[in-house]
Design a protein around this nucleic acid. Structure first.
Lengths: 125, 125
DNA sequence: CGCTAATTCAACCATATGGTTGACGATTCC
DNA sequence: GGAATCGTCAACCATATGGTTGAATTAGCG
């Protein structure tokens, strides 16, 4: 048979930094987490608080966000603090600007978005 | 019991529009396709041309991009034309701007990005 | 009409993702 | 020291993703 000593899967999924960032942003839970971190640094348990899922799940999400460079995590004592790292967004943002035929950021829409991400289920009005 | 014979998987993966857009952008092939479409509308086969993967694979990528609203596809005769729909990016872009503590878009970096996405492997000179 | 080109479909495969639970390693507190 | 708290790890499950191949569909061409 073919020498499959390498047997390496025919298909290597390599993830460049931008792909990681976009992938991280593609989940609503993670976007919500980022939005929460806009307000302040938080401990993992506190991040998990509002979500209807296990701590472990949130921990994984935070891991992905950290992998993408979108947050940093610093362990002090037994609590691990999560801090937003908005710079990681810049590469992705720059990439998107290339398609910037659309209007140059509707600040009003922006506010509504942030608002709805923060407490999306409550009728804001 | 409440067992709603639908045995519905405990976990429904719903994808809001923004998630779809970010997910679509999280793949380098798809970003490359979008970049190509920046230049001009293209037929599926032509899109597939530069890539080392099957037509079917590209067709699926285009499907995802269309689902996310990032492109539209119009079939004329037997060829299907793909057209960039940059407006779909605006929601995602607006979302990202909320984290806009980073510098307001380095146009130089932008050019380099577009350039490297267009023909990343060939010496551009 | 029959061929060929353009594209999708269907089945399949491997790996990634998002979630669960339960055990575990640290750390703080009494 | 022992118990509670913080967080991750490991194993598991279901589904999604990214790719393949080959067959089917549809449309133009000689």
């Amino acid at each position: 048979m073919v020498d499959d000593s390498g047997v390496r899967p025919h298909n290597i999924r390599m993830s460049d930094p931008i792909s990681l960032v976009f992938a991280a942003l593609s989940d609503p839970t993670r976007r919500a987490i980022l939005t929460m971190l806009l307000e302040d640094d938080m401990a993992v348990t506190d991040v998990a608080q509002p979500f209807a899922m296990s701590l472990a799940a949130i921990s994984k999400h935070l891991g992905l966000l950290a992998d993408a460079g979108l947050i940093s995590q610093e362990k002090r004592g037994r609590v691990k603090w999560c801090k937003l790292e908005p710079d990681a967004l810049s590469a992705a943002s720059v990439w998107m600007q290339g398609f910037g035929q659309f209007e140059p950021v509707d600040l009003d829409a922006l506010e509504r978005f942030i608002e709805s991400e923060l407490h999306g289920d409550e009728p804001s009005d």
